[in-house]
Amino acid sequence: MAELTTVARPYAEAVFSLANEQQRLGAWSEALAWLAAMVQNPVVTKFVTEPKHTAQEIEALVLNVLGAEQVNAEVKNLVVTLIANGRLLLLPEIAEQFELLKAEAEGVLDALAETAFPMTDEQKTELIDTLSKKYGKTVRLDVRVTPELIGGVRVLVGDDVIDASIRGKLQDMAASLKN
C-alpha cells in the first residue's frame, strides 16, 4: 500500500498544482473520481491489462467512457501520461491523494469516529466542534459503529488516535498491571 502511495503521490501533486493554479479543484476532483471508478471496473481493468491492446485503444476506451464534458486537454494529457508509464491503474490512489491535498488546502480535516453505539446528531456536533477547536480546521466526521469497543469512542484524525473507549482503557489498565 505504501508503495502505491509513493508512486501515485507525484501525479496527485502535479494534478493538484495545476488544478489549484487554474482554480478548478472541484472539476479535477470530479474527473479523478470518475477515472478512478472507471479503472476499478473489472471489465476496464481486464481491457487495460491485456497486452494485446495498444495504448491508443486504451486511451480511446477511457476517454470515450469518461465523456466529452469531463475531458479537456489536461485530463487527456494525464490519461495519456499514465498509459505511457503503465500507471493507469493507479488512478484510485491518485484520486485519494488529490483529495487529501484538496482538503488540506481548503482547511478541512477528515476524522473517523468509531463508537460502540450509534451517535446522536447532538453528540456528532459536539465532537465536530471539539475537534475543530483542537485542530483549528473544519472537520468532516465519518462515524462507524464498532461494537468491539464496548463503550466510548475512538477518534482517528490523520496519524492522531484519541482513544476514549472502554476497550482502550481496559487495554491500558492491563498493560500497566503487567509492568
Rank of each mutant, 00 (worst) to 15 (best):
I162K: 02
P42K: 15
Q23W: 02
E114V: 09
N72S: 08
A174F: 02
Q23D: 12
E106S: 01
V80H: 09
A103W: 10
I128N: 11
V161F: 03
Q97E: 15
W34C: 12
V157A: 01
K137C: 04
Q97W: 07
E96A: 15
L156C: 00
G158T: 06
N72A: 11
A33Q: 06
E114W: 09
N64M: 14
D142T: 10
Q23Y: 04
I150A: 02
D142Y: 02
D172K: 06
M173N: 12
L61F: 14
N64E: 05
A68G: 12
T125K: 08
I166N: 07
G26T: 08
T138N: 07
V7D: 08
M119L: 15
V139W: 00
K178L: 13
Q97L: 08
M173I: 03
D142H: 03
V161E: 11
E122N: 10
R167H: 09
E148L: 04
N64L: 13
A27I: 00
V44K: 08
E3N: 12
N77I: 06
Q22P: 00
P51V: 13
Q171N: 10
E126A: 15
L82A: 02
P51L: 09
Y11Q: 09
E21M: 02
L63I: 05
S132D: 03
G136H: 05
L127G: 06
L177D: 13
L90R: 05
L32N: 11
E93K: 04
T5C: 06
A31N: 06
A14H: 10
Q40V: 03
L88P: 09
A164F: 00
M173W: 08
H53A: 13
K134C: 02
W28I: 01
N41P: 11
L127H: 06
G151F: 05
Q171I: 12
E13Y: 02
P147E: 02
K124T: 14
E50A: 12
V39R: 03
A95Y: 03
